[in-house]
Write a protein that binds this DNA or RNA. Sequence first.
DNA 1: ATGTTC
Length: 472
Amino acid sequence: MTVHLAAEGPYRFRIEPTGAMRVPGVVFASHELLHGADKAIEQVANVAMLPGVVDASYAMPDVHWGYGFAIGGVAATDPREGGVVSPGGVGFDISCGVRLLAADIDAAELRPVLERVMDGLDPAVPRGMGKGAVWHLPGRGELTGILTGGSRYAVEHGHGDERDLLRCEDAGAVADADPGQVGERAVQRGAQQVGSLGSGNHFLEVQRVAEVYDPAAAEAFGLRPDQVCVMIHCGSRGLGHQICTDHVRAMEKQMARHGITVPDRQLACAPVDSAEGRAYLGAMAAAANYGRANRQLLAQAARQVFRRAAGARLDLVYDVSHNLAKLEDHEVGGERRRLCVHRKGATRALPPGHPDLPPDLREVGQPVLIPGTMGTSSYVLVGVPGGRAFHSTCHGAGRVQSRHQAARGVSGRHLRDTMEAHGIAVRASSWRGLAEETPDAYKDVSAVVEASEGAGLCRKVARLTPIGVVKG
DNA sequence: ATGTTC
């Protein structure tokens, strides 16, 4: 199937509803960013066929092909109209997200102790495939606190302070988590990985504020030029992956009973108000809490290293996920409705004045954290008034080469040497993993951010560049 | 992303 995209404004394309599509598709991107994205655009049209979908099936400028839903996709359903929730609309790495911490030192002050900091982070940040974690938990009993309490549970156990929670999406914990819907295998995998980075594009970076575009917003976020920052990008590890697998399977079995047909098996779904829908949302919320606790513990590990090796303090700027479904209130067709908003490889971007923002950010809007490709820039953005795509924007660069292609094109050692020659300290966990993350394998994150701003989804606040990379 | 193909 070839889907026709009609340009309808700067950085905005439309897919007219045809066939089984219930709503149009809206793609925010430049022509250049959409090059080679045909399969992803077809997925945007497929999502427009889901029961109860409202308004439009949206795609962010970093859209690319994913499991069922495109990565960079945003879609909302109305539970009162049979609206569904689909695990493919969240992704395998439930609650994958970014946490940014700002240091009380500048890049010039860090430089003399950088190697000491990096040598401290190297053993303090568990990463790579499989085991190794800040906390080791025997099983379900010990894990339940994390699944229900998220970052709050970690803080209550001495790993952080109250202010950290104010600067987390949902104040650090989603309320409606249901650990009872998390299967035994997910628990077994998750219990061994609390406080670990994982692999692939996940990282912990020491960064410098290279450019400030919006001084007022930067100041409100606690950022200034040349300041040192720490960015953590990770998710819910094997726990979230297993939850997705288990609930996709359960939904596949029940779809016929619910009278649901989808154009792609990977769009397995269930009504939000059904046993399967509620079970998934409860387990997903538990994984969301796991992801935040994971980032909280890694942030504490980084804080200890910075205090010891650099005498520096790290304050939380914000923590936000880009793989999540949430029940949120939105105005659609002049009516306020409670919707199930799926964001997969898309970041929530609340505008100024939104009631879910902490008081000290209410005037300026929500910080949006965009992890860059290894060795390049990362961005801090802010939500804007207008509420496009249910207050959502991009999440990162997006792959253009497969892992295999990437690893064939460059050696990990060469990549490390190149970054070190550019003054970036590197602590990798595997050469192969490093090679797979070569910047050549990704779109230009700056082009993605330009398109997101141009489309009216967000505004640029600051650009961050890496000083040190701790790679999974 | 992921005990990288239950």
